[in-house]
Nucleic acid binder design. Structure first.
Length: 666
DNA sequence: CCGCCTCGAGTTCT
DNA sequence: CTCGAGGCGG
């Protein structure tokens, strides 16, 4: 016999833990910390260990109770799980609404809008307040008994506190939170398992684990969206209140559901989530619109397996299946060979997609994508489409595996494969493809920023052999451009002007524009503030470069070898002779080196001594009188003879403001 | 040596 | 934006 006190304690612990579970997983409003929760769980576990008679099926320790199964048993649904008709635009929604209205003899009716989650529908059966079994939707008539796996989902109550119908079934959608999806796939790749294509597949895979312990590892969650049936208690007469009632029983209901009084509310709800669904922690592929009144629902009935009282207003698909016609190769600025998918054009989320990157050979092998495959293409919320995975079921056996070419598709040079990494690259830096990419990079916004020089002009200039290296940009003439035709006089002038203006870009931009491997905008910035001029940078030995924070051996090697290349040095020389600034406009330190100043008159914002100190700090020199060697006269108020002398000699003069600007910045 | 963080490179369509 | 590589601290 177990002591009554202990029995009471166990019961108390069960209730407490279940209550905190509900607070945490359903209401998202925890009252205690993890440590405290663990303590309660441990105490209950210890009691149950000592007195196995205390273990109840709804004990929180029993979420993972069952041993691995051999398979799943089929269960017949008491009330079939229906599927839904679809609407893809406002007109289709309106015609559904009109039809329902006429079937209801013109009655005005409320609807409930819910997000249609892209997960797995399940049915949970409770008897006398206890979860007795749970099943997948299957074909709607029969599903699989996955009770043991569903029990591991913390937001599913194992028992109902308070009174509940004697026997009832709720329906819900099990999903795999997006926030955990990437991590799961990382794990799978580490464990040599194929990654899941999307969170929906993860949910399906997780729910079909034979060992519930595996399922318990997965952060599955659920939203309850309907009541299958209920015996023994009076139920609300509409869907909305039914959901409120289920919520009061402890079920997790999506708080984004709304009750709508007219069709405009429905449309607004749809449009709102069309934009905002990207911020949800689950995939939603549309909005489910349900007639609220249950008696209206009964009147409307169903056609085939689709109820007339509900419709799914689908969002434009962000995924689509299409055929992979070919795999092409792009040669990038760095010479890397980047494979891309040539797709049978397909509409994904409202845009026709014809190509998508495949990253590298590794990626293709990992996904096992073959030419001729039907592939799943995705434009997940974001803009850039990607090939997710092949649809293996559509394989005919005529697909061709892809192999990286042995030679550069542009210049036919034998490609180099870096050992360890399946990344091929064309070693020929003079490869026309690389020069084209480099030229585009050189004139781009982050680089020399030459307005009006886009892809087309770059290609045309290369085509006409007017450009053989990036410095040739500064030797383009109006006549050259006119010869290219397709070009009005005005735009020709604009381009010549833009090229001229670009000579004054800050040094960091120029260094970035050169396109040195591994030197992007940040590194260019670091190099600029360290050297202030391209010459000392070009001469810096690797040993010096690696001492600079942010520059490691690989970047140092890359910089060093760039400047050791004769051709590159010629390019720099050409840039210099054509007037491109290759010094920091405002080198932070010592930027006044070799400049002789004379300060005279009364300065407003600082004393003469301060001004002179500042000049010396920046590497400049101070003269006591104006001579031909004087570079600048800083003239304050009431300047006397020195001013006259400077005027006589034509010495450049700086007002106080101009001077402050020159030394300014810090 | 490993994990974390930052930076670089490539990318689609209208 | 996303992936991978490089740098760096522990």
């Amino acid at each position: 016999m177990i002591d009554t006190n202990i029995r009471e304690r166990a019961k108390y612990l069960r209730n407490e833990i279940n209550r905190h579970n509900h607070l945490y997983h359903v209401l998202d409003r925890p009252e205690i910390g993890d440590a405290e929760y663990d303590r309660l769980m441990r105490e209950l576990g210890e009691l149950e260990n000592q007195y196995p008679g205390l273990i109840t099926t709804d004990s929180p320790t029993q979420r993972v109770g069952a041993p691995p199964a051999d398979g799943f048993t089929e269960v017949k649904h008491v009330v079939p799980l229906l599927s839904l008709g679809n609407a893809f635009n406002d007109e289709e929604l309106e015609s559904w609404h009109k039809r329902v209205t006429s079937l209801l003899d013109g009655a005005v009716f409320d609807t409930v809008c819910e997000l249609k989650m892209d997960g797995l529908a399940v049915a949970l059966t409770y008897e006398n307040g206890l979860l007795i079994h749970g099943a997948t939707r299957g074909d709607g008539l029969r599903g699989e008994d996955v009770t043991q796996n569903l029990r591991t989902i913390r937001s599913i109550p194992l028992s109902i506190s308070g009174t509940s119908p004697e026997r009832f079934e709720v329906r819900g959608e099990v999903y795999f939170p997006r926030s955990h999806f990437a991590r799961l796939n990382e794990q799978r790749i580490i464990n040599d398992l194929p990654p899941f294509a999307n969170p929906r597949n993860s949910a399906a895979g997780s729910l079909r684990q034979l060992d519930p312990r595996n399922t318990a590892q997965r952060p599955l969650d659920i939203f309850i969206y309907g009541l299958g049936y209920a015996n023994g208690t009076q139920m609300p007469d509409n869907h909305w209140d039914t959901m409120l009632y289920l919520k009061s029983l402890g079920f997790r209901i999506n708080s984004n559901n709304v009750l709508c009084h007219n069709l405009d509310d429905v449309k607004n709800y749809y449009r709102h989530w069309l934009d905002d669904r990207k911020d949800l922690d689950y995939d939603a592929d549309g909005v489910v619109v349900k007639v609220n009144s249950l008696s209206y629902q009964r009147n409307l009935g169903q056609v085939g397996r689709e109820p007339r009282w509900a419709i799914a207003y689908k969002f434009p698909a962000t995924q689509a299946v299409t055929q992979l016609l070919d795999i092409g190769i792009n040669v990038g600025r760095t010479g890397r060979l980047n494979p891309y998918a040539v797709l049978e054009p397909v509409n994904v989320g409202g845009v026709t997609v014809k190509t998508a990157t495949l990253h590298n050979e590794d990626d293709i092998l990992r996904k096992d994508v073959r030419i001729g495959d039907w592939v799943l293409v995705e434009r997940a919320g974001e803009v850039i489409p990607r090939v997710v995975a092949p649809v293996i079921e559509h394989r005919t056996g005529h697909e061709r595996k892809f192999a990286m070419p042995e030679r550069c598709p542009i210049c036919n040079t034998i490609v180099v494969r870096t050992i360890g990494v399946a990344m091929s690259s064309c070693p020929n830096t003079a490869c026309p493809a690389q020069l084209y990419e480099l030229l585009k990079h050189f004139v781009s916004k982050g680089g020399m920023d030459i307005e009006g020089m886009g892809e087309k002009l770059c290609a045309a200039l290369l085509d006409a052999s007017l450009i053989e290296d990036i410095a040739d940009v500064y030797f383009i003439t109006r006549d050259d451009l006119i010869k290219l035709d397709h070009m009005a006089d005005i735009s020709t002038d604009n381009i010549i002007n833009a090229i001229y203006k670009s000579k004054e870009r800050p040094l960091a931009r120029v260094i970035f524009a050169l396109g040195i491997l591994h030197v992007g905008s940040e590194t260019a910035e670091i190099l600029t503030s360290h050297f202030g001029d391209i010459i000392p940078l070009a001469r810096a030995p690797e040993e010096e470069l690696v001492t600079i924070p942010g520059i490691g051996p690989i970047i140092a090697q890359s910089i060093s070898s760039y400047f050791h290349d004769q051709d590159n040095m010629e390019v720099i020389e050409k840039l210099r002779t054509s007037g491109v600034r290759l010094q920091e406009e405002n080198p932070l330190e010592l930027r006044l080196t070799g400049t002789l100043f004379v300060v005279t008159g009364k300065l407003e914002s600082l004393t003469r001594a301060m001004a002179e100190t500042r000049i010396k700090e920046l590497g400049g020199a101070i003269g006591s009188s104006v001579s031909r060697k004087t570079n600048y006269l800083v003239a304050g108020k009431d300047a006397g003879s020195k001013l006259e002398e400077a005027l006589k000699l034509g010495t450049p003069m700086l007002s106080e403001d101009e001077f402050l600007k020159m030394i300014g910045g810090n």
